[in-house]
Amino acid sequence: MAITFEHVGYTYQADTPLATPALDDVSLTVPDHGYLAVIGHTGSGKSTLIQQLNALLKPTTGQLTVDEFTITPTTTNADLKPLRQHVGMVFQFPESQLFEETIQKDIAFGPQNFGMAEADALALADQTLTQVGLDASYAQRSPFELSGGQMRRVAIAGVLAMHPQVLVLDEPTAGLDPQGRQEMMALFDRLHREQGMTIVLVTHQMEDVAQYAEQVAVMRQGKLVKAGTPQEIFGDPDWLRANQLDVPRAAQFAQDLTAHGVTWPQGLPLTASALADQLAAQWPKGGAAHV
């Protein structure tokens, strides 16, 4: 099993009058090469949960395992460096982490920290730059002259260059235009399918969850309230709305069609293409009657 949370709890500023519990007894398993989406209302503990994955925060109770690494409340910082390379983290608005003089140097910064020689790291930086959709002419420019969307790509390239086995994404497409969003999500999907990367995605975009994720975890007030396949989670739209979450637009539309007598023999479709497939399969019968 790639990632296993066992009764993980986390409290901010533990043992002070300002202590705030953020995670409460979370148990969850993500298989090797899995794709987990974490959803939940703002402040439900999603970001705290994923920061456990590379031990930026260590659990105050319980333990978690990420491949060959085990993180307990007593794990010391000395053992964490290989883990940090193994688990790549893309934070919210990662463009704020850029600092080098050139884009190439900034992307090479991560690999160099983990011991790669400078020349190799710079070559790797050029490769990664094209991977995120910027051409080689950007390599020698300053990261601060780019647009917000391009800075985001450079920041993500800086994480991908470390060749992590597990990629953790905290709202990677927030604030991007629709095309940029699609391109980035497609890139992560490609990394997942072609290189077998395990992906953990925190997002408020239910369309992305429905289209890409294999597993969904729903957080509320620091607790894991539901986990399952997208089909299981979105199959109960009323429960989701009661938890201040939403269903993908395609599922919403499909549910509205149900009220007009359309049935879904293969289960409620979650994406536009699944919806179209099911409608097309039913079309000839009804369509022929009207001709």
């Binding site: 940090r84 688990v87 790549g88 983290m89 934070f91 704020s96 920290n113 994480v159």
Partner: peptide, 12 residues
């Protein structure tokens, strides 16, 4: 936040 992001990139 920046410190965490750089830690994740291997800064001690």
């Amino acid at each position: 936040k920046i410190m965490n992001a750089q830690r994740a990139r291997g800064v001690d």
